[in-house]
Design a protein around this nucleic acid. Structure first.
Length: 295
DNA sequence: CACCATGTTCCTTG
DNA sequence: CCAAGGAACATGGT
């Protein structure tokens, strides 16, 4: 489910429910989702601890807590990877099949479930130091993007997935942003013109902001395991999800007509990941004017 | 059975 | 050290 916008929407949704709550018990059903910590350490730190803040950095959820005596504040990071979800549900509601970690928060359980178990809970806050700038913050200017881009010959699509370059983009919004910016996914990063960098900078921010706005208008209902929130399932069949899909301009639209120019959207593979693009709107500007030989 | 999947990390090869 | 490509992780959908 998660790229930056989805994590942002989730954080805003969870924050008021979680702050001030105290953890009364913890169950780790799949210790593989813990990294840099053990079930025992997690239990020791979390038992009796209270949530004091929740924020987002890149695709990480940043939970701050403090122990029972207002002492030793500490941080836990959550990452949802491909299929992770986090929500509160009444304790009497049955836990989902792939619940990985459950925090007893009194009348409710805070559930971290992940069908593929690629997601993580970690106590190693240093993971955040490896991230590049937050694309929606003021410090991320077009010239910051320009200098990041100049140092690489990698295809720009691949570079956008590099969390050290900009934090929070994933496979969907990387394709979407390049389409909006009318930049070919194959352009070597350092070959982007000033204009293209500027367009890409604006497109990145627009695409992410848009998705957050749209996401936050969708009612989230995590109350029961059988109920879906309808927000992050662009491939599913319910109408909420369908309307979400329609917002995507190129992602998962192979073979369909470009909404802008009518050409057929293409899918190709870069770095073992699908890239979607419109050959009309994002032409590959390869060779500069080849000299014509007069012979 | 085949292939695909919103992410990250590790490994090899050059 | 960097870049590129691939596999791995584990499960489910089509």
């Amino acid at each position: 489910m998660p790229e930056l916008p989805e994590v942002e929407v989730l954080v805003r949704h969870l924050r008021p429910q979680l702050l001030g709550r105290t953890v009364r018990g913890i169950r780790v059903r799949r210790s593989k989702v813990l990294s840099g910590t053990s079930p025992r350490e997690l239990r020791r730190r979390l038992s009796g601890a209270t949530f004091t803040s929740l924020s987002r950095r890149g695709k990480f959820l940043v939970f701050q807590l403090h122990g029972p005596n207002l002492d030793e504040p500490f941080t836990i990071l959550g990452h949802l990877a491909m299929t992770g979800r986090m929500y509160l549900q009444p304790r009497k509601v049955r836990l989902p099949k792939h619940a990985a970690v459950i925090l007893n928060c009194g009348s409710e359980n805070f559930v971290f479930e992940d069908t593929r178990y690629f997601g993580r809970f970690t106590m190693d806050a240093a993971a955040l130091d490896k991230l590049g700038p937050e694309p929606l913050e003021g410090a991320f200017t077009a010239s910051v993007l320009a200098s990041a881009v100049r140092r690489s010959g990698q295809a720009i699509k691949v570079k956008l997935l590099d969390q050290k370059m900009v934090a929070g983009l994933g496979n969907i919004y990387a394709s979407e942003a390049l389409f909006l910016a009318r930049v070919s996914p194959w352009t070597p990063a350092r070959n982007l013109s000033e204009q293209e960098i500027k367009r890409l900078w604006r497109a990145l921010r627009q695409v992410l902001r848009d998705a957050i706005t749209r996401g936050s208008t969708v009612p989230l209902d995590y109350a029961g395991t059988e109920q879906r929130d309808g927000l992050f399932y662009f491939g599913s069949s319910d109408s909420t999800a369908a309307s979400y899909v329609e917002r995507l301009r190129v992602y998962d639209r192979e073979g369909r007509a470009c909404r802008r120019c009518g050409r057929t959207i293409q899918r190709m593979v870069q770095a073992a990941r699908s890239t979607f693009f419109c050959p009309g709107c994002q032409p590959c500007k390869r060779a500069l004017p080849k000299e014509h030989r007069s012979a």
